[in-house]
């Protein structure tokens, strides 16, 4: 019992002091220790970029041209190669790639009939089927991990700049196959359109 009486008041005083210090203006003394001449953190933004036709692309509403985009009809496949790169000098990121499609006003909506395949630079199939692109992923399931991209070990690049490769582990060249199914519903159509969206999502990792 004696021990209990001694402990509780101490505990209460501790709380009071803490609250008072936080709530009142008083004399203040501070001591700063700077561990770095500059601010701690990263002045460079952690960002991914896409590289297309030798140029860095990182702006809103970017459109990457794809050959024969107006010649995609049932049973055929379009192909697009591009580079996904970590633009940060140091920080690494885990990258996820996903593809989506939406219809276009004025045309039969092809989005549900597209199938996507993504092939890594070493031939690894990240999603879909490179030999049978008709077995690729639909817009609802077209998501895959690209894995870890290290920092580029060089200064980051601006949108529109000429591509200067960083460290080999900081970027990957991928091939995207866009296949239009030879579906009975499409055989009744004379035309169709869709917009294809490539979404990259990266999370920093140590």
């Amino acid at each position: 019992m004696r021990i209990k009486r001694r402990i509780w008041p101490l505990f209460a005083i501790g709380l009071t002091l803490f609250t008072t210090a936080a709530a009142t203006s008083a004399y203040v003394d501070q001591l700063h220790l700077n561990f770095s001449a500059a601010a701690i953190g990263s002045p460079e933004e952690f960002r991914l970029v896409v590289v297309d036709e030798g140029k860095v692309v990182r702006h809103d509403n970017a459109v990457l041209p794809i050959a024969d985009s107006n010649l995609l009809f049932p049973g055929h496949t379009l192909s697009k190669q591009l580079i996904v790169a970590n633009n940060h000098r140091v920080i690494a990121g885990d990258v996820e790639v996903s593809l989506d499609a939406i219809g276009v006003d004025g045309g039969f909506d092809l989005s549900g009939y597209l199938r996507f395949t993504v092939i890594d630079q070493d031939g690894t199939v990240l999603m879909g089927d490179k030999d049978h692109p008709e077995n690729g992923e639909s817009r609802w399931d077209a998501k895959a991990s690209l894995g870890k991209l290290l920092g580029r070990a060089k200064p980051s690049l601006q949108d529109g700049a000429d591509w200067v490769p960083g460290s080999a582990s900081s970027y990957r060249e991928i091939t995207i196959l866009i296949h239009l199914l030879n579906h009975a519903a499409l055989q009744q159509q004379h035309s169709g359109l869709a917009r294809v969206l490539l979404r990259l999502e990266a999370t920093t990792v140590s």
Binding site: V49, F73, V104, R195, L200
Partner: peptide, 20 residues
């Protein structure tokens, strides 16, 4: 805690075609 970056681009203005 981590930084996250999301970027989206369009592959072609639109894809598709017509047979007429």
């Amino acid at each position: 805690g981590a930084y996250v970056d999301v970027y989206q681009v369009r592959i072609g203005t639109q894809v598709g075609g017509a047979y007429d």
